[in-house]
C-alpha cells in the first residue's frame, strides 16, 4: 500500500471519528484490478476502503453540487486538476469553501490504457497548492516519465497542428468520421468537472435544438460545438472528456483549440489557478477587433 493511501485512510478515520465531517468522498478499488471508483465513506471503520492510485482519474469535485450533499460537511480527495475545478466553482460562488474539507493529493499521473495519460505528461499542476487545501498528502510513486519538467505546452497541440495543416475539406471529413460515431450518450458532458450548469441546454425540450436522432451529423456537430464552447475558457485540461468517450472521439482537440485561441488573443489564462473572471466572462475595449478595421463610415 502506498504512502498516500495510508495517510488518506488515517486522516479520513480521524475526521469521521472527531465528527469534523459527515462523510468522506474518495476512491475505492473497483471490480477490476485496474480500476478505481468514487466512493462515500461515512463510518470511521470503513476508512480502510479508501485508496488513491494511478487509476483514480474520475473528477470528484462535481459531486459536491449534488443535492444530497448540500446540508452536509464533506471531506473530499482532490488531485491537481480536480482542485482547479473546485476552485473555479468556489470563485463562481457555486460552493462555499468552509463547508468542505479538502484533502489534496499529489498526483502520480493517471493511466491511459497501458501508458500514462498524455494530459498528465503535459500537466504542470499535479499537486494542489498547499494554501488551497486543508491537508496535503505527498510522496506518491512518480513514474519516470512524469519526473522533471512537464512536456512543452506547444507539444500538446501537435494533433491540432496536424489538423490545421489539412485542407478544409479534409478537416471536415476527419470530423465527420469522428463525430458520426457519437451516440450522444453525454458522458463527456457528465464527466467534465467544469460543466456544471444547473439546467443543461441539451436537457431542455424547448427549444428542441437536438433530440435523440442517431444518424444526424448536424446534431452531432451542434452538440460538440456548443459543448466545447460552454467549457472553453474554463477547461482545466484533465482530458476526462476524451478518456470517457466510449467511441474514442478526440473531443479534447476542440477544447484545446479554443484554449489556444484564447491564449493567443487574450493572454494566457489557466482556469482554477489564475484569478477569475475567466476570459469569456468579461470583455473590454482594449481587446483586438477582428470585424472591421475601417471604423465608422
Amino acid at each position: 500500500m502506498c504512502k498516500i493511501t495510508e495517510e488518506l485512510q488515517q486522516i479520513a478515520a480521524e475526521l469521521l471519528k472527531e465528527g469534523k465531517v459527515d462523510l468522506v468522498l474518495g476512491y475505492t478499488k473497483g471490480e477490476q484490478e485496474e480500476q478505481s471508483v468514487p466512493c462515500i465513506v461515512t463510518q470511521p471503520e470503513d476508512a480502510s476502503k479508501l485508496i488513491f492510485d494511478e487509476y483514480s482519474e474520475k473528477a470528484l469535485s462535481k459531486y459536491l453540487l449534488e443535492e444530497s450533499f448540500q446540508d452536509k460537511k464533506v471531506a473530499i480527495v482532490l488531485k491537481g486538476c480536480d482542485q482547479r475545478a473546485f476552485k473555479l466553482m468556489q470563485d463562481e460562488s457555486r460552493l462555499g469553501r468552509e463547508d468542505v474539507y479538502l484533502i489534496g493529493v499529489e498526483c502520480p499521473g493517471m493511466k491511459w490504457g497501458e501508458d500514462l495519460s498524455p494530459f498528465c505528461l503535459h500537466c504542470d499542476y499535479r499537486t494542489p497548492a498547499k494554501e488551497d487545501v486543508d491537508s496535503l498528502l505527498t510522496g506518491a510513486d512518480i513514474p519516470e516519465a512524469m519526473q522533471g519538467e512537464p512536456l512543452d505546452h506547444e507539444d500538446s497541440f501537435t494533433d491540432i497542428n496536424r489538423l490545421e495543416k489539412m485542407s478544409k475539406e479534409e478537416r471536415f471529413e476527419f470530423w465527420k468520421r469522428q463525430l458520426n460515431r457519437c451516440k450522444r450518450c453525454y458522458t463527456c458532458r457528465n464527466a467534465c468537472p467544469v460543466c456544471t450548469c444547473r439546467v443543461c441546454v441539451f436537457d431542455r425540450e424547448n427549444p428542441d435544438y437536438i433530440d435523440r436522432a442517431k444518424d444526424q451529423m448536424a446534431q452531432h456537430q451542434f452538440y460538440h460545438v456548443i459543448r466545447a464552447f460552454h467549457v472553453s475558457d474554463r477547461c482545466v485540461s484533465c482530458g476526462e472528456c476524451a478518456r470517457v468517450c466510449p467511441e474514442g472521439i478526440p473531443l479534447h482537440l476542440l477544447n484545446q483549440k479554443l484554449l489556444r485561441e484564447l491564449d493567443k488573443f487574450y493572454g494566457e489564462y489557466q482556469a482554477g489557478i489564475d484569478e477569475v473572471p475567466t476570459p469569456l466572462s468579461h470583455a473590454n475595449a482594449d481587446e483586438p477587433d477582428f470585424f472591421g478595421k475601417e471604423g465608422k463610415a
Partner: peptide, 28 residues
C-alpha cells in the same frame, strides 16, 4: 465587446471543424 470575442472563437472553431466560417459575417 462580448460579441466580437465569442464570434471570433466560434469562427475559429467552425474553421477547425471544416465548416465554412466565411458564411458567418460580423459587421459593425
Amino acid at each position: 465587446y462580448h460579441t466580437r470575442k465569442r464570434m471570433m472563437l466560434l469562427k475559429s472553431l467552425m474553421e477547425f471543424m471544416g465548416l465554412d466560417e466565411e458564411r458567418l459575417l460580423v459587421k459593425w
